[in-house]
Write a protein that binds this DNA or RNA. Structure first.
Lengths: 129, 129
DNA sequence: TAAAGTAGGAACCTCAAAGTAACTAGTAGT
DNA sequence: ACTACTAGTTACTTTGAGGTTCCTACTTTA
């Protein structure tokens, strides 16, 4: 059984939660939502600590779920840009509420990837998420 | 690093998501919200497949987070009743939205986690979870 | 007399998810 | 010539979360 407890054969919420549960997943979505579309390498640098394997895996999954869009440019060193879909917008909206709740419950100490006012690509804040 | 990626030292949403992410957790909350306060054994029978270890662990955690209330009655075979707190209400409200979203995305496969006819106690076997 | 229910606690075990490292092709820079 | 960057893929290794099993002490039921 293990982690397959709530799998495809379960109800919609389970599917959705399962999808969001994994490590990195929410963080990736949040980053894409706050910093906008990004190329693979940039994203990997933003989500510090993640391995290429994990990032690829998560992105593929999110793409398959229609949450992330993958734009492949077959230039000589290939350029792949990831962005959120409209679907993701609905999701982020709810996540935002969850964020509000969390802020109230656990105090508003580190603003998790600041909904606005991000200094785009760079930033070394270490307060992430 | 593993699953400790988003731990206490992270932002509020991470804490909250982390807390909800684990297997069974959401399901337990949902059961308590739809079926009302329940004793340990009843809950274990409702959340079919869960081990006592897991159920205990999750309940302790949820209690610690102020989401679940534990009422201990020191009768001869002890009676322990679990119920949701007011905090939980706020959470369930948002979870409800997530549910709505999930229904739209993944179609409304009706009852989740009610694989068999449930005979336990009260409960209206509506669209739980 | 034996089994079952009550609410767990403690010890041991397993396997799948996550991490690590090496590798790809083609180009640009030093 | 030798790096490094691009966006990954593949194979190997590990570890810890969750499962399983046995235990409690007392009562009620068959």
């Amino acid at each position: 059984m293990a982690r397959l407890t709530n799998d495809r054969n379960s109800c919609p919420v389970s599917i959705l939660m399962n999808l969001l549960s994994g490590p990195w997943t929410m963080y990736i979505i949040w980053k894409l939502s706050t910093s906008g579309p990004m190329r693979f390498g940039a994203l990997r640098r933003q989500v510090e600590g993640i391995s290429t394997k994990m990032l690829t895996e998560r992105l593929r999954m999110l793409e398959q779920e229609g949450i992330v869009h993958r734009h492949y440019e077959p230039t000589v060193p290939p350029q792949v840009t990831y962005s959120l879909t409209e679907r993701a917008g609905e999701l982020v909206a709810i996540l935002d509420q969850l964020n509000g709740l969390a802020q109230r419950w656990y105090g508003d100490l580190p603003d998790c990837g600041a909904p606005q006012a991000q200094t785009e690509a760079l930033e070394e804040t270490t307060v992430l998420f």
